[in-house]
């Protein structure tokens, strides 16, 4: 039984690795590669965000803020101060982690829609600062970012970036799955299931919430840094409220509390708009309708619903009864 569990964990990862390895066979030109890279970068954010939303049951409508800080931090340190990109990304990530910790401490005491509002406000504050401080960020026009280079080797071209992002995604998924399967992951799922239940079992829910918030912010920040160096350009568009919503939608769409769901959600919702450009002026209508219909008929998201169809429950246990924000109420303090 134990072996089966272990096997399923590594087999899922192996399947993803296989997809990453074989996908280039289907990518006919640079544009396809570009879309695939975009999918990978979004998927990294979503895998982290899913730890927070899907597993710990805490909503964030502001993660584009962390993504943006990761992107702009690395961009500013490399472009304005001439830092080497890797050092810039590392320091930025540490900075974002520290900020997420400072913000998370007070914010994560809030629950449900109040937490949604607070994270949303946080995201909007970051996006306005980014758009306004044009000395540093180039304002609404954005700024250009030097290419990623490590010890003199510059990463350039879609093909190289495909592998960079592919490996980063695999590592991101591996780490997230490890966490979920550990006592810490159990603690997160427990406080999602019942916060009082978790507390009386000895789990310091506040500490765990802040930690997973920081971890998810780090995921977003790293993806942001990679995006900036890959695109060679950052604009405030990726820092907005809309991008935050997009990210949450990907997580929920793919399936909360399912790491591969987050990847699938990112893949579908990143490629869908590209495909929908065919519909021209009907693009928004179709996109909105797809979102609504999927969530109405598959409220648990794509992957868990499909997995249940094949009677192979994805991940431990079943989907939660009350995912996100709600849960059974924590103790009154």
């Amino acid at each position: 039984m134990l072996r089966r569990l272990a096997a399923s964990r590594s087999s899922g990862l192996a399947a993803l690795a296989l997809v990453v390895a074989l996908l280039p066979l289907a990518l006919q030109n640079a544009y396809y590669y570009e879309v695939a890279i975009l999918v990978g970068l979004n998927a990294i954010v979503c895998v982290g965000l899913n730890l927070l939303i899907g597993y710990a049951g805490q909503i964030s409508l502001g993660h584009a803020g962390f993504f943006g800080l990761g992107a702009y931090g690395s961009a500013i340190l490399t472009a304005r101060y001439g830092w080497p990109p890797l050092a810039a990304m590392a320091v930025t990530t540490l900075g974002v982690a520290a900020l997420a910790y400072l913000i998370g401490r007070p914010i994560l005491r809030l629950r449900g829609h109040y937490l949604a509002m607070a994270t949303l406000g946080m995201g909007i504050i970051i996006s306005i600062v980014v758009a306004t401080e044009d000395q540093l960020t180039g304002g609404p026009d954005g700024m250009s970012v030097p290419a990623l280079s490590v010890f003199g080797f510059a990463f350039a071209g879609e093909r190289v970036w495909y592998w960079v992002v592919g490996v980063a995604l695999l590592v991101a998924v591996w780490v997230a799955r490890n966490l979920v399967d550990s006592p810490h992951g159990r603690a997160l799922r427990a406080l999602h299931g019942s916060e009082v239940g978790a507390e009386v079992a000895g789990i310091d829910s506040a500490r765990h919430k802040v930690r997973v918030f920081v971890i998810s912010a780090v995921y977003a920040s790293i993806a942001g840094g990679l995006t900036a160096h890959y695109a060679g350009f950052v604009t405030p568009a990726k820092v907005t409220f809309f991008h935050s919503i997009e990210l949450v939608t990907m997580v929920v769409f793919g399936g909360m509390a399912s790491t591969f769901g987050a990847v699938v959600g990112a893949a579908v919702l990143t490629t869908l708009p590209q495909a929908l450009t065919l519909f021209k002026e009907y693009e928004m209508v179709v996109f909105g309708a797809v979102m609504m219909l999927t969530m109405i008929f598959m409220p648990r998201g794509l992957v868990p619903t499909l997995a249940a169809l094949f009677d192979r429950p994805e991940g431990p246990g079943k989907a939660s009864r009350d995912a996100g924000g709600g849960g059974i109420r924590p103790p009154a303090r």
Binding site: A187, G197, A201, A319, R321
Partner: peptide, 16 residues
């Protein structure tokens, strides 16, 4: 109870 987990996992949380 943690309804989002298996019975055994519920107990394992207690070992935290």
């Amino acid at each position: 109870v943690f309804f989002n987990m298996s019975a055994l996992e519920n107990v394992m949380v207690g070992r935290y």
